[in-house]
Amino acid sequence: MKKLLIVFMLIVNVFAFDWAGKVNWTTSYKQAKLIAKQTNKLIFIDLSLSDCPPCKFIAKTAYSSDKVAKYMNKHFVNVIFIIDKQRVPLEVAENFGGSAPTLLLMDKNGKLIGTQVGLNKSWFNKSKNYDSAGFDPKTFSPKKFINFLQKNLK
């Protein structure tokens, strides 16, 4: 019964941005912590802005990738906050330094494990095409993004 309740809460709170890709998102940090404790998963948090090109780039490339979504859904309870449109809990907001996107990895108790601000050149096959003005989705590598999640946010 508890597992059914957890699944129901997650489904009810899926944040359905049209640009959020295939990742299962929730917008409730409190529920994410509860689910993380019961499933023994880490919490992945994306702090984005609605008009942020790098934020949308990650959503359209990383979060829309079948491989990335499968990995993230299996290993994390995923939370997204569009910080100019939503209220962000203080426990999360205190880890936001003012630049978006900010990606956070927390343990099931809310302890910060890792942070990434902005795009990372290691996610791309051709780093010469990486710049803040013209992102090239053709150079994005789902495999490199997953490797980054495994190594750098833990």
Rank of each mutant, 00 (worst) to 15 (best):
K2D: 12
K3D: 12
V7T: 15
L10P: 15
V12P: 15
N13T: 13
F17C: 12
W19F: 10
K22W: 05
N24I: 08
T27N: 05
T39L: 03
L42G: 09
I43E: 00
I43K: 01
F44N: 06
I45W: 05
L47C: 06
D51I: 12
D51T: 14
P54T: 03
C55G: 04
I58L: 08
A59W: 06
A62C: 05
A62H: 07
S64Q: 06
D66N: 09
V68A: 02
V68T: 04
Y71R: 02
F76G: 11
V77D: 08
I80M: 11
F81W: 09
D84C: 10
K85A: 14
L90N: 14
A93M: 10
A93N: 11
E94R: 04
G98C: 10
S99Q: 12
S99N: 11
S99A: 13
M106G: 07
G110A: 04
L112Q: 08
I113G: 14
I113K: 15
G118Q: 07
S122E: 08
W123Y: 10
W123H: 11
F124H: 11
S127K: 05
N129T: 09
A133Q: 06
F135N: 01
D136C: 02
D136W: 01
P137Q: 00
K138D: 03
T139W: 00
S141Q: 01
K143A: 07
L149M: 09
K151T: 15
K151L: 14
L153T: 02
K154W: 13
